[in-house]
């Protein structure tokens, strides 16, 4: 179960990128260009499609030669690296992506060797299985809740904390009445959308060791 931590899956794919001397710009640069413009908030394909806790797409050019005594080695291809922490194993997760963000999938993976397109799901599944490697070890910030459950839990925590802050010390009968109203209101709230989050924080690092 090395692709699984609790109820969360950690899936990893290495998809070889087309090596076409005639392509200009090269396919890896075209992927980089597309990825650099992807929305990372509510418009992210991983926020639109269901079930993603965290996803990372990166272009791996080569292994870096660090000088003697290391041996100089090279990859046979450039790779698109796709890592995702998600709510289900490959088949249902991929079905969710294809159902929601086909154009993004095609736009990114069309630059990969052997990519069959989203139109034929069984061929796409076979392709992704062929590119999948065992994750072996990964960190899941939340490993026992689905994405919707996590979002509802955060919404509940925020709302309950605000309720307590504004009602602490209230006379018990009134408190109970207002609490029952509050719970009813909370249950009627739609689950928050993924990729929205709380207030923006300027997270910055910058030391040598970070």
């Amino acid at each position: 179960m090395s692709n699984q931590n609790g109820s969360v899956y950690g899936l990893t794919f290495l998809c070889p990128i087309l090596n076409d001397a005639a392509a200009s710009p090269s396919h890896d640069l075209q992927i980089r260009n597309y990825l650099s413009k992807l929305d990372t908030g509510a418009g992210s394909p991983f926020a639109i499609a269901p079930g993603t806790h965290l996803a990372r797409l990166a272009v791996m050019d080569d292994v870096i030669y660090v000088g003697s005594p290391a041996i100089e080695e090279h990859l046979q291809s450039k790779y698109l690296v796709f890592e995702t922490n998600c709510d289900s194993d490959l088949e249902p997760y991929l079905r969710g992506l294809v159902g929601a963000v086909t154009s993004h999938i095609d736009a990114i993976w069309q630059h990969c060797t052997g990519y069959p397109g989203c139109a034929d799901f069984s061929r796409l599944l076979a392709y992704m299985k062929a590119c999948q490697i065992t994750t072996s070890f990964f960190f899941a910030a939340v490993n026992n809740k689905t994405v919707p459950q996590t979002l509802v839990a955060l919404q509940t925590q925020q709302a309950v904390a605000q309720f307590i802050a504004s009602h602490q010390g209230m006379e018990p009968v009134q408190l109970q009445r207002e609490f029952l109203d509050f719970i009813q209101w909370l249950r009627s709230q739609p689950p928050p959308a993924p990729g929205v989050g709380g207030p923006l924080r300027a997270i910055q690092t910058g030391g040598h060791n970070e």
């Binding site: 997270i203 690092t205 910058g206 030391g207 040598h208 060791n209 970070e210």
Partner: peptide
Amino acid sequence: CISRQFEFVQQ
């Protein structure tokens, strides 16, 4: 190491 120690704790 200011970034790893003080700045981490502060941030």
